[in-house]
Design a protein around this nucleic acid. Structure first.
Lengths: 256, 256
DNA sequence: AAGCAGTTGCGTACGACGTACCCGGTATCT
DNA sequence: AGATACCGGGTACGTCGTACGCAACTGCTT
């Protein structure tokens, strides 16, 4: 991120990758570790849930479990890896059946609601700068379940991944918007009403200009009671699933 | 983000908000400023484009324009605001007509390609943790254009914003995936092939387990030549636009 | 013309951050 | 018993955002 952040060099193709999922948790020899990865990750998630991802610093997490700062590095070599573990642990909360049921629409609806629930519990999830990520076991499980719903229906892998990407993008985008109010309130100490009051001089200047009809509509509408988030989520999700339905070749005769 | 990051208190409803878009650029009295916001933002964008958003620190940007670090704070009170200005400046590169043409499908296609082009030029855009954001002039312009394509077609504002959100989510999600390879290469010094080699022990372990058919398909397929990004983008965009089309009530008689 | 209030550029300093390096202690293997 | 490999963690470095204060300068008021 910042600070030193020097990057490991890749010397040759053959050297052992330092991937957290390949690093054994317990050593073959030597003294027994005093802490566990699970314990560390749990503490980090607890802090991040309550005080934001930035608060879950290496120092803070170490303190949380009663360890010295640098001891943490015996378990998790980089903060990046801590975050990776946190993400996968959060995805582990998804309550999914072993395999898709065959009713892809029901399965994706289940997955969507599961993802939304997890993200609401762990708002920092939607705020991660997503990178080239190594899939952990629970991310894999989700991919298999989600991708599996569309597998074997005559779609190419490109099409499947595009559709799954659209699905994920919708869920993520929706939840991100939903979560951002609570997150920003925690971050800035301003709740929604205070924020409205704070920005109102600017907003009114825009409204007074009269050249932003869409913005005006949004603002005016935002002051009125909305469809509740559940219903809005469901509405958009229905559209996305319809899109997917239209892309799946019909099994027997007629095409869509 | 981190460090001190103490948050301004909101004392009362009435105190003047410190919103960058309301802060006048030039003072009424006193010596004339030596630099300009535009110059600062341009330097910040240049650095972020080449070395990533983190490299565009206050110190670095100040050095870039030949100013002392703290001088920057006379122009831009917080780094958060610098980023806000950068985003809006980038959106300013969107080449959009004054108002939608009436052909919403053509207009949204234009907007989608514009957004993709801008994001490819400024990869840090897709990597921003999005927050409760104050819309700058160019963000407003985009909102008006994009929202305007769907306005007056019998949709509620909730529906319009859901559809526009789906549209934005798709474009953003696609470009994010597209850009992440280049960004990660800059960040880690590993190109795509090196990354593949680096992770291959882990990937092979998963493949060998034989319990991840979807992942296996993706990996195997990823080694073969793909549809080019343009075509994939266009394919998904078509689906999204179809979704929107299906949601727009028919103007005369029959419904969708 | 003189004074003063407001604004400039900017140096210093503080408290956070990630983490490299090093050390003394401990558990296991030979 | 000695060697080996790993443990916990203290110290230190370079980075960050930014609060504070100060001298110089500008433009308005008298």
């Amino acid at each position: 991120m910042h600070a030193k952040t020097q990057v490991r060099e890749v010397d040759s193709v053959g050297d052992a990758p330092d991937i957290i999922w390949l690093r054994p948790e317990r050593p073959a020899r030597g003294p027994r570790p005093a802490y566990s990865r699970a314990q560390i990750v749990e503490a980090a998630i607890r802090v991040a849930d309550h005080e934001g991802l930035d608060a879950a610093s290496m120092r803070r997490v170490a303190k949380e479990i009663g360890a010295g700062t640098m001891s943490l590095y015996r378990y998790i070599p980089r903060r990046e890896d801590l975050i990776e573990l946190m993400v996968d642990a959060a995805l582990g909360e998804l309550d999914l059946p072993e395999r898709p049921s065959g009713d892809w629409r029901a399965d994706l609806t289940l997955l969507a609601h599961g993802l939304r629930a997890v993200s609401l519990r762990h708002p920092w999830l939607t705020r991660l700068p997503q990178t080239r990520r190594v899939f952990g076991p629970n991310a894999l499980r989700m991919l298999e379940f989600g991708g599996g719903t569309l597998d074997g229906r005559g779609l190419s892998i490109d099409e499947m991944m595009t559709l799954f990407g659209i699905f994920n993008g919708y869920v993520d985008g929706f939840v991100r918007a939903e979560v951002s109010w609570a997150e920003e309130e925690r971050r800035t100490g301003m709740d929604r009403d205070q924020w409205m009051a704070y920005t109102s001089p600017y907003v009114h200047q825009i409204l007074a200009g009269g050249r932003h009809p869409v913005f005006s509509k949004v603002v005016i509408e935002a002051r009125q009671p909305h469809m509740d988030p559940e219903a809005r989520f469901e509405y958009g999700l229905g559209l996305i699933l319809d899109t997917i339905a239209a892309s799946i070749p019909a099994p027997s005769g007629q095409a869509s």
